[in-house]
Amino acid sequence: MSARTGHGSLVTFTGLAIAGAGLVAASAYFGLIHGLPSAWTMVAGTGLMAAGLIISLGHLGQMRRAALAARGAGRSALSNEALLAALALGAAAMAAAVGLSGSDAPFAVAAAGAANAAFLVSIGLVYRLPGQLTWQGFSAVTPLTGGLAFGAITAQAAVASGDVYLATLLFIGIDALLFSQRWRAIAGMAFSERMLADPWHVRRTPLLAARFFLLDVVPFFMLAGVASPLAIPVAAAGLALDRFGFYALALQHTTEREIEETEARITAAGRAAPG
C-alpha cells in the first residue's frame, strides 16, 4: 500500500513540517502572550518547515509538475495543505525577518502563528480518509496537537529562563489526551493475518507507547520543575516516532484485504460448525 511503500520520505517531510509549523505557532503564542523572545525560534521553525517542504518535492514522481498541486484548491485536502504550507512558510519567514531586524511587529507574529496553526490542521485533514482504518477519530488532530506540543516544549526550553508556563504543560496534556484516544482505538483492533505478518503491527503497543512517553510524558516532567533544553531532543525523538508510527501502522481497506478477512471468518465459522 502506498502509505507504507517508501514511507520514509513521508515520515521525514511531514515530521519536519509539523515540527517547524508547531514551533512557529508556539513561538507566536509565547511571544505575543508572555513576551518571550521569538525571533530565533521563528527562524528555526521556518528552517525546519522549509526543509520539510523541499524534501516533500522529492517525494513526487513528477517534481516539475509540483505547481499543479494548487489546481484542486477547495476540493482536495492535499491541495489545501500545499497552499497553506506556502502561506505558512511565507508568514513565518516574514515574522522571523522582522524579529531579527529588531522591530516589534505583533501583527506579523500573529499572522505567522495563525497560518502555521491552520497548516497543522490541514495536514490532519489530508489523512482523514474513510478507507484508512487506523487513521480515524482523533488521528486527524494529532499533527496539530503533536506539533504544538513539540513547539511549546522547544520554545520554552530554548529560552531556559527557569519559568515554565502553564500553557506548555497544557499543550502537552492536550496532545497526551488525544493521542491516547488514537492509541486506544488502534490497540482495540483485532489482529488479522496480514497484521500479524507485519512486524510493526505486532509491535504496535511499544511503538505507540514510546511515542507517548517521548513526546508527552518525559518532556512534561522535565519541564514541570524547570525548563531544561534536554527536553528538546527527547520531544524531537517523540515527534519522529509519531510520524513513523502513523505510516507504519497504516491499514488501508482494499478488496484484497476484505476478502482475506472474509475468508478468515468463513474458516472460523466452518471450524465452529457442529459435525
Binding site: S2, L60, G61, Q62, R65, Q252
Partner: peptide, 8 residues
C-alpha cells in the same frame, strides 16, 4: 504529480 495520494 506522482504524489500517490489517490492510492491512499
Amino acid at each position: 504529480l506522482g504524489c500517490r495520494y489517490c492510492e491512499m
